[in-house]
Design a protein around this nucleic acid. Structure first.
Length: 502
RNA sequence: GUCCCCAUCGUCUAGUUGGCCUAGGACACUGGCCUCUCACGCCGGCAACAGGGGUUCGAAUCCCCUUGGGGACGCCA
C-alpha cells in the first residue's frame, strides 16, 4: 500500500510556489480519487475554437466534480514556442472565464525532472540510445512507404551500445508482441497491436524531452485523473500507456473529444476564417454565447439549447459527449449571440458596446445615454459590431441614406408629411416617447394616412436607415435639434431628387 | 499506403437496456400572423436513419461487409 504522502521519487511534483510534498495540501487535493483535469496547449499560436472547447470540457468536468483544473503550457518545442502565444492563450482563457486553479505551469521549467525520468528508464532498460542519422531514417521511411507499409523505426539501435558522449537521441523500447489498449470515456475500448507501434524518441539530440515523454511525466506528477484532449491524440495514447507502465504508474482516465471541422469537412484551420477566440471578441461575440455554442458542439442534454455557465457545470458529463466530429456553424453561433445580447444587462452591454462604437470613431458620451440606446437597440443585432453600426446615427448625422430606403420613402409624396411633422415637432413643449408617439399619430390622422406614411420618411430622415427602434423612441433619443436638422436636410434632398427627375 | 476512429435533416443534435419513431428539437431556408420599419414572438412548411447483408416476432438502435469522412504514422505538440 503506497503512502500517498510519500510518492515514489519518480512521481515527485513540485508546483511553483508550493511545497513539494502533497502532505501540506488540503485533504481533498491529496485524495487520489479527486478529479484533476488539465488543459495543455502548446504555445505556437492563438487559442482557437477547438482548443477552447477542449479547455471548456476539461474545465467543466473539473468544476462539475469539485475538482481542480490545471493549465499547463507544453512548450518543449523550443523552436516554435513563443511568449506571445502564451499571452494570447491566457488572454483567451480569461475572456472566456475559464479560470484555472493551478498554473500556468511550463514544461521548460521541468527539464531536470524529465531528464531524471529518462535516466531511470535508461537504467531499467526501458529506453536506449540511438544515433541513427536522419538520412538512414529517411531512406527507411521511403522504402516502407514504397512497400505500402506504415513507416516505423526498425529498432536498429535496440541492441547497440552507443557512446553517451556522442550525439544521439533516446528511444523508448516498445514491447514487440502483444497488444495495448485503454478505455476511453467517450469512445470506449481502443486497442492496438504492439507491432503497429515503434520505438519513439523520448529525448531529442539537443537533450530536450519529446511531447510523449513530457505529457506522461507531467500528468503523473500533477496527478491528473482525467486526460481530456482532442481526438488527434488517440494514436499517441498507446505509446503513452506504455510509458506509464514502464514507470510503474497507474494510467489516468482518457477522454478524447471529437474534432471540430470547417465547412469543407476538413479540420478547422486558419483558412476557415475567425477561428481565434479573440477574433470572435473583436467581431462582437459575447463570451457566454461562444461558450454556449461550443458546449453544444459534441455534447447535448436532451433538446436543451440554451445553457448558462452554471447550468453547464451542473449538467455536463463526458459520457454524453458525441463520438463523431462536428462542423462549426457560424449561423448558430450568431443566433446564440443575439439571444445573449437580448438577455444581457443593459449596463453591461453598454460597456461592451462603447468599445465598438469607438471603433467607428464615435464617443458615446457625446449624445444620448448609451444605456438608453442599448435598451432601444438590444435584440436587433446579432453581434456587437452590428449593434454599434445600427446605433451610430444616435451620435452623428447619417452620412448618407440607405439607397433602398431613400428610394422608397423619399418620394415627392413624403414632402408634406415630413414638413407637417417638422412643424409639429418644432412646436412641441415636451420631448418624450409618449408625446412623440401621439404627435406622429396625430399627423397621420390629420393627413388621413396610415402611421407608416409618416413614420417611415421620418425614420429615414433621422437615421438614414430603414430600420430603427420604434419611431417614438428613435426621435426621443436623437433629440429635438438633431431631428429638426436632419428633417430639413431630408426635405432638401427630396426636393433635389424631384427636380433632377423632371 | 498502414493503423485507429466515426457515420440520423444542409448544420448542431434527440433517439439512454431494440418495439411508445408514420424519427423529435434547434440553426439556416421558407409560407403566414403581428406591425410605423427592423428585430423579437407566434403558427405552418421543406428536409435525415450512407448502401448491402444478417440476428430478431420486431432495428435508426445489435453483428458483418462496402462506401464515405476524419485522425495518426516527426528529434511537432
Amino acid at each position: 500500500m503506497p503512502d500517498p504522502c510519500r510518492p515514489a521519487p519518480l512521481l515527485r511534483y513540485a508546483p511553483p510556489g508550493r511545497p513539494g510534498c502533497s502532505c501540506r495540501q488540503p485533504a481533498d487535493k491529496r485524495d487520489p480519487m479527486t478529479v484533476r483535469t488539465r488543459f495543455a496547449p502548446s504555445p505556437t499560436g492563438y487559442l482557437h475554437v477547438g482548443g477552447a472547447r477542449t479547455a471548456l470540457f476539461s474545465w467543466l468536468h473539473a468544476r462539475r466534480h469539485g475538482g481542480t483544473f490545471v493549465l499547463r503550457v507544453e512548450d518543449t518545442d523550443l523552436e516554435r514556442s513563443t511568449a506571445e502565444s502564451v499571452n494570447a492563450i491566457l488572454e483567451g482563457m480569461t475572456w472566456l472565464g475559464l479560470e484555472y486553479d493551478e498554473g500556468p505551469l511550463f514544461q521548460t521549467e521541468r527539464f531536470d525532472r524529465y531528464q531524471e525520468v529518462i535516466d531511470g528508464l535508461l537504467e531499467q532498460g526501458h529506453a536506449y540510445r540511438c544515433d541513427c542519422p536522419r538520412e538512414r531514417l529517411d531512406v527507411l521511411r521511403a522504402k516502407q512507404m514504397e512497400r505500402k507499409e506504415k513507416p516505423k523505426y526498425d529498432g536498429h539501435c535496440r541492441t547497440r551500445d552507443i557512446d553517451p558522449t556522442t550525439p544521439h537521441v533516446i528511444r523508448f523500447r516498445t514491447p514487440i508482441e502483444g497488444t495495448v489498449g485503454f478505455d476511453d470515456m467517450i469512445r470506449g475500448r481502443v486497442t492496438w497491436e504492439n507491432s503497429e507501434l515503434d520505438d519513439l524518441v523520448i529525448r531529442k539530440s539537443d537533450g530536450s524531452p519529446t511531447y510523449n515523454l513530457a505529457v506522461v511525466v507531467d500528468d503523473l506528477d500533477m496527478r491528473i485523473s482525467h486526460v481530456i484532449r482532442g481526438e488527434d491524440h488517440v494514436s499517441n495514447t498507446p505509446r503513452q500507456v506504455h510509458i506509464f507502465r514502464a514507470l510503474g504508474a497507474h494510467v489516468p482516465v482518457f477522454a478524447h473529444v471529437p474534432m471540430i471541422l470547417g465547412d469543407d469537412g476538413a479540420r478547422l484551420s486558419k483558412r476557415h476564417g475567425a477561428v481565434s477566440v479573440m477574433q470572435y471578441r473583436e467581431e462582437g461575440i459575447l463570451p457566454e454565447a461562444l461558450l454556449n455554442y461550443l458546449v453544444r458542439l459534441g455534447w447535448s442534454h436532451g433538446d436543451q439549447e440554451i445553457f448558462s455557465v452554471d447550468e453547464m457545470v451542473a449538467l455536463f458529463d463526458l459520457e454524453s459527449v458525441n463520438k463523431s466530429a462536428s462542423t462549426f456553424n457560424t449561423d448558430k453561433l450568431l443566433w446564440l449571440n443575439q439571444h445573449y445580447i437580448t438577455q444581457a444587462d443593459p449596463a453591461h452591454l453598454a460597456r461592451e458596446l462603447s468599445w465598438h462604437l469607438g471603433q467607428l470613431g464615435i464617443d458615446p458620451s457625446d449624445g444620448p445615454e448609451l444605456i438608453e440606446v442599448v435598451r432601444a437597440q438590444q435584440g436587433r443585432a446579432k453581434t456587437l459590431v452590428e449593434l454599434a453600426a445600427i446605433s451610430a446615427f444616435f451620435y452623428r448625422d447619417p452620412a448618407d441614406y440607405d439607397a433602398k430606403a431613400a428610394k422608397k420613402h423619399f418620394k415627392a409624396a413624403a414632402l408634406e408629411p415630413l414638413s407637417r411633422a417638422r412643424e409639429a415637432l418644432a412646436g412641441l413643449a415636451s420631448w418624450t416617447p409618449e408625446v412623440l408617439h401621439a404627435l406622429v399619430e396625430g399627423v397621420a390622422a390629420e393627413l388621413e394616412v396610415g402611421m407608416g406614411k409618416i413614420a417611415q420618411p421620418l425614420r429615414v430622415a433621422v437615421s438614414g436607415r430603414a430600420a430603427t427602434p420604434g419611431i417614438d423612441v428613435t426621435l426621443d433619443l436623437v433629440g429635438r435639434d438633431a431631428c429638426l436638422r436632419r428633417i430639413d436636410r431630408a426635405l432638401d434632398y427630396i426636393r433635389e431628387q424631384a427636380e433632377s427627375a423632371v
